[in-house]
Nucleic acid binder design. Structure first.
Lengths: 340, 340
DNA sequence: GTGGTTATGCGAAACGTTTCGTGAAAAATG
DNA sequence: CATTTTTCACGAAACGTTTCGCATAACCAC
């Protein structure tokens, strides 16, 4: 008797306890918990017992039995970059709506960590992995569903991205519409992802279509922030910059460029207009950092989860490209009515 | 035979499979996997079999058996506010270092959601919950360890916070040191947390100690951003603001205040100096948004995990207050050598 | 060679679920 | 009332681990 009471007090109640309390069989409790049909009188007794004991199902036992855990791992470099943070937020929302839990793994873009997290996720028997990984080469993978964001990694793994080419094109068109004649494209380093290249290609395409004179500048990974200061300085003659518009590959870069331009006594947007890419907002929902090409995060999140969890999807598409939009953020000349 | 082969192919290999492959007993495999002492010849055979079958332990079975899951749930309102995002990042790092996984739950400050996530976390048998919850009143809780951040919730639940009182004081002292005579404290709404009150109290204390004339303004929750524009306008006489320093309860608020001041043709920091609270940096590691009182996030994260997981901690302290620092962020007059 | 002592691999039991075959009771039929 | 059909709760088995009492083999001492 002492042993029993100790058992009951020290550990959480189980279905067996509920069954004993309600005077029914184990399987009956299970059915009530899972909403399967069961006689009314039984149902009531079980529900009372559950309330009385404050019973909670143990989802690890469920997971073991069902080989399904309602958990998805999200791999991102960090949550401190607003773009990743916003991505995590939207994916979390979508997962939650479908009663899934989200395991967050910050990889710091370290490929060893990325790999470690992937094995960890598999051991944890997550139902799938969504990852924005910039790891150079092959990532081993199992029969765990995987969806990549923004960068294709290997065949058979679908990738969700914004329309980078279209976005680049849109940036060029916007700058042209706003009166620019002489523009530049700025991006950092030879990223492993080819998505920035698409932005560049789209921009080039747009410039050609609109007859803009353009220049492409790829900054060295090591000291990009120093290097673009040099680059910009070199293009200032007699106090005025030879560009009247710049498309930066990310809002982050745009932010730094704007700071630098102001330091060089160039007025933004009067002297030079800036468009970034991502649609980052300060503090989550206040202003855009700059005029920008906005990635459709809610839709991207939706699509990731969709691709990951819907198993009736035969032949998952290798790349899903979602449409971007332009948003005014104070670094282009624009009448206020166009603000969103 | 067909059944066997199907079994082997369709689902992941188990310890039983490894044992059969290596020709040893189940328990022996378990020991090898867990690094317990086992004869060398056995060990080698098991390790070979593990490699051959690409075996991975099923941590849900482990969790079921051990009643321990190496998972911690983190409850925060969202990841889009940079402060929460940074918090999540640091907690993730600390947890990871201890081989723990982090379940991220964004609550949107909705008390129903907060409650839902807490029960979910308990069902999931997480080993503990770390939460920054602003939910008005009582949150039911179990024998699941809980650590609160920035706001005490109920007895027996430890709370980790930055030294809000000291931070307020520090802000006042800094403003005094920088030459202010007439300052204001600005905060939004009657938050349920009493921590902002401590910032206010500390600031007041500092102002008194340094003989600063001060004014306190608490903005209405509903339209705070409109209201402080009014408030500031009212304090402009003949084009100049009657304050020469403002302490804002968060960097977020400071950011908006700065925008508004500029719109009202007040120069920051020449006409009025601004200090915020939190230590938010744009894009994670570029500049501070404003001169600010920095919360020690790495230490706070460390402390949260420590309090949560160390069970030999008798009588956990109800409140752990960690020291803050001041950081220059361009909205105070300061010589550059003081920049960090 | 015998008896006693270590050392160590073995395998059953248990963790808390879900599932499914079984059988008893209830309902329907003639 | 007898027989067949339907209904539905019961409880054992299984999911993949860990743990622990046992038994076997190895070792040592005399």
């Amino acid at each position: 008797m002492k042993i029993e009471s100790v058992k009951k007090e020290s550990s959480a109640p189980t279905m067996k306890d509920v069954a004993r309390e309600a005077g029914v069989a184990l399987g009956t409790v299970s059915k009530v918990v899972n909403g399967l049909p069961v006689g009314d009188s039984y149902k009531i007794r079980v529900e009372d017992a559950i309330r009385k004991l404050n019973y909670q199902v143990n989802s690890y036992a469920q997971g073991l039995k069902a080989n399904k855990t309602y958990t998805v791992a999200l791999l991102i470099p960090n949550t401190t970059e607003p773009f990743f943070a916003a991505l995590a937020y939207h994916i979390n929302i979508v997962l939650m709506r479908q009663k899934y839990r989200m395991l967050l793994c910050c990889t710091d873009s370290d490929s060893a960590l990325e790999q470690e997290y992937i094995t960890m996720a598999q051991q944890n028997k997550v139902d799938g992995i969504i990852g924005i990984t910039y790891s150079p080469n092959l990532i081993i993978e199992e029969n765990t569903p995987f969806v990549a964001i923004d960068r294709s990694i290997g065949t058979g793994i679908p990738c969700v991205a914004s329309d980078n080419f279209g976005g680049g094109q849109l940036a060029a068109e916007k700058l042209a519409d706003l009166g620019c004649k002489n523009v530049a494209f700025l991006r950092i380093g030879s990223s492993l992802s080819n998505e920035p290249n698409k932005r560049k290609a789209g921009f080039e395409n747009g410039c050609l279509a609109r007859g803009l004179h353009y220049e492409m500048k790829i900054l060295d990974d090591n000291k990009p922030y120093e290097e673009f200061e040099t680059f910009l300085s070199e293009h200032i003659h007699g106090g005025s910059l030879s560009f009247d518009g710049i498309f930066c590959v990310t809002d982050r870069l745009a932010y730094s460029v704007i700071q630098t331009l102001r330091r060089l006594n160039q007025r933004v947007p009067e002297d030079v207009q800036i468009i970034g890419y991502d649609g980052v907002r300060l503090f989550g929902n206040i202003d855009y950092v700059c005029s920008t090409i906005v990635q459709p995060l809610p839709e991207m999140a939706e699509m990731c989860v969709e691709l990951l969890l819907r198993e009736n999807m035969k032949a998952k598409p290798p790349l899903v490209c979602l449409p971007v939009t332009y948003a005014y953020g104070g670094t282009t000349v624009e009448n206020t009515r166009e603000q969103q």
